[in-house]
Structure formats: C-alpha cells, structure tokens
C-alpha cells in the first residue's frame, strides 16, 4: 500500500492526478511509486471484503473519536491516516480523495472504525431517501448568504 495512505490533506490538485489518481509531480517529498500499480490491491487492506458493515453515504461526515494524545501506533497505517484526517470533519468522499484510496475501500474501513468507536459518522438527514424540508431551507439560506 505504499503511497496510498501517506497523502497530506488537500494535496495540490493538478491535471495529472485529476485522472485516475496519477502521480503528482509536485509531491517530490512523498515518493509514491506504487500508485499506478494494480487497481485490485487496495482491497487488501479490507481483507478482501467489499461490503461495508454499515451503509455509508458518499457525503456522510466522519469525525475522529480518538484524542490527539492517544497512541495510534497500534493501528494499521490506513486507520491512523483516517484518525488524523478526521480531526477535522470530512466526508467519506473527501477521505477517499485525500488518501487516494477507492471509495469502496474507505467505506469498508470507515464502517469498521465506526463499529470499533474510533470514528463517529454523521449520516445525512433523509426523509424517505430525500433531504428533509428543513435541510433544504437551510441549504437555500446558506447559498443566499454566500
């Protein structure tokens, strides 16, 4: 998994890695030779599982439930990376993008971490699969304030 989990938050986005997470010429400090290798390997970190234990929306927000002082070194590198990244609330999609790990893989890992109390997940407020009216009103006034 070299290169997959060592991304700095919000790495510079350039055309090269807008497409398929290609190498980032600006990140010379973090060599990531394995990035363009097999697309199947990422599922190794989930032990080959592709189904998360809970349904996680792409936009579900994840926050770290571990303290800054807690020793995370006993965790696997991908879990450490997620704990650190989620000290600030981030969506499942952001975690996938920032760590450059496919969505399906982070979903499995995050769901496991939530079950073990390492992260808290805030799912969107839905009403029969749709955002509820109160949420829509808040979004509208939020957009108008921009």
């Amino acid at each position: 998994m070299a290169g997959g989990w060592n991304g700095e938050p919000y790495p510079p986005v350039d055309d090269a890695h807008r497409h398929y997470g290609g190498t980032n010429p600006g990140a010379a400090a973090s060599p990531a030779p394995a990035e363009q290798s097999s697309l199947v390997r990422p599922y190794a970190v989930t032990g080959g599982r592709t189904a998360p234990r809970m349904q996680l929306a792409m936009e579900a927000l994840v926050s770290s439930a571990t303290s800054v002082h807690q020793d995370l070194s006993i965790l696997t590198p991908e879990r450490q990376a997620i704990c650190q990244l989620c000290r600030q609330v981030r969506s499942v999609a952001e975690i996938s993008a920032l760590l450059r790990v496919p969505l399906g893989v982070v979903r499995v890992v995050i769901a496991d971490m939530a079950a073990e109390g390492l992260v808290q997940v805030h799912q969107p407020q839905l009403d029969a699969g749709k955002p509820d009216l109160n949420l829509l009103e808040r979004v509208l006034s939020g957009l108008r304030r921009l």
Partner: peptide
C-alpha cells in the same frame, strides 16, 4: 480545489 474520488468497478 475540486477533489477526485475513485471507485473500482469489478
């Protein structure tokens, strides 16, 4: 900056 997420279709 817009981020890119990926899904692997198997």
């Amino acid at each position: 900056l817009p981020l890119t997420t990926e899904a692997v279709m198997t």
